[in-house]
Simulated assay, not measured.
Amino acid sequence: MSVKPTVQRATRELPQRRARPAINVKSLHRLSSSWQLYVLLLPALLYLILFQYVPMYGVTIAFKDFSPMKGIFGSEWTGLTNFRTFFTSYVFDSVLVNTVKLSFFSLLIGFPIPILFALLLNQIRHQLAKRFIQTVTYAPYFISTVVLVSMLNVFLAPTTGFINHMIEGIGGSAVNFMARAEWFRTVYISSTIWQTMGFSAIIYLASLSGVNPELHEVATVDGASKLQRIWHIDLPSIAPTIIIMFILGIGNIMSVGWEKAFLMQQGMNLSASEIISTYVYKVGLLNAQYSLATAIGLFNSVINFTLLIAANYCAKKLSGYSLW
């Protein structure tokens, strides 16, 4: 006897459910009350759309025989020809291996150093000394790439560089570091760490500032050493930040900055210094092979995107922290 009234009541409520507004009134009120924040966000959003998303239509050049006279849409469609040209070229193996090695070792060596530096700097209680060390290590980040490579050429010069003077002072022989292929990755990675260590440590220092000091006080009362407090309090507290930064690092593993590698290139170290980004620059801008350069760049971006998705998935499964 109770089934029929229930069905009738559900039937009467059905039009009302369909007539509900798609946007919640509370959401509209929240948006209207915070409109100033969205106005501040608008310039960055417009910049992202205009310079990141709008130019993405140019990716179609990778599948065409692009001619500046015909334009993007007027150029002849060639399909995967440009990709086949790159995959079958004599430089494919070397530039891919050089890029992977340089990126992998940069991430392997360069990623934990800012974390260790932030943990050690956080233990300094003298504020003046702490600020001085942070400023000294932060300043090299603002040195331009051209100036940095010029400094490397001066410091590592085989006859006048002070590094070789030190080597000769202890009985060794001078080494032309900038021209030797076996030294290219060492010089590149070590100089990058020196330049970016202080700046990269800022985000970890910000995370460490949010650690509850009472945890350290309790651990000190219990007799924990500084190393034990770093391992059991500081590291677990910044673990989410470390995981997020590691995911981003994996997603950019193939995106080695071409400016520094290109400026460090010489004829004698080309076997180790020629990477995908420098090859794209030479093919696209110097040789005017725009379609081939776009195809190589798209191939590089697809690898980065795939690694980002895989790293995010693994991090979410193993630790519970992820980008999304």
Rank of each mutant, 00 (worst) to 15 (best):
S255G: 08
L80I: 13
L323E: 04
F177I: 13
V256L: 15
H165I: 09
E13K: 10
R20L: 13
I113W: 11
L152Y: 01
N122W: 06
Y313H: 12
V221F: 10
M197E: 06
A295R: 03
S67R: 11
K260R: 14
M178Q: 06
S75V: 05
Y204H: 02
L156M: 11
F73D: 10
V187K: 01
T145W: 15
V54T: 08
P114A: 00
S291C: 09
L235P: 00
I244T: 10
I309H: 08
F132Y: 11
V218D: 00
V91C: 00
T241K: 00
A310H: 02
L107C: 03
A181W: 11
P21R: 11
L235S: 00
F162R: 05
A288Q: 13
N304T: 08
G110D: 14
N164T: 01
Y90K: 12
P236C: 02
F66E: 08
L323V: 12
A22L: 15
S200P: 00
K101L: 15
S67D: 08
T135S: 15
A139K: 01
I189Q: 10
N164V: 02
L263A: 02
T135P: 10
K317T: 08
A139C: 07
A311F: 12
V39I: 14
F51H: 10
M254E: 10
S207K: 03
F73T: 11
M178R: 07
Y313K: 12
F132D: 01
T99K: 00
Y321D: 05
G172V: 03
E13V: 08
S190F: 14
T137Q: 06
S301D: 11
L205R: 05
S144M: 14
L107G: 03
Y141T: 05
I250G: 04
V95C: 00
Y38T: 08
K130H: 09
Y138M: 03
L31R: 10
F177T: 09
L323R: 04
I296L: 12
L42K: 01
I124K: 07
L42W: 06
R229D: 03
I115T: 09
F105D: 04
P15I: 06
D234F: 00
T145I: 15
N24E: 08
G172L: 01
F184L: 02
I244E: 03
A157M: 03
L121Q: 06
F184Y: 02
M178A: 04
V187N: 00
G71C: 06
M178G: 01
L80V: 09
N287E: 12
Q36F: 12
F105W: 15
K64Y: 01
W77E: 05
D65N: 15
R180K: 12
T88G: 04
Q8A: 10
F142S: 03
A293S: 05
Y281V: 09
A224I: 07
Y141C: 08
I244S: 04
G210M: 07
L108Y: 06
W183S: 09
S67Q: 03
E168R: 13
V39E: 11
F63C: 06
V146H: 00
E214S: 12
T81A: 12
S190P: 03
A22Q: 07
A272C: 02
A261H: 00
A174P: 02
S301W: 11
L40A: 14
R30N: 07
T85Q: 11
D234E: 05
I296Y: 02
N252M: 07
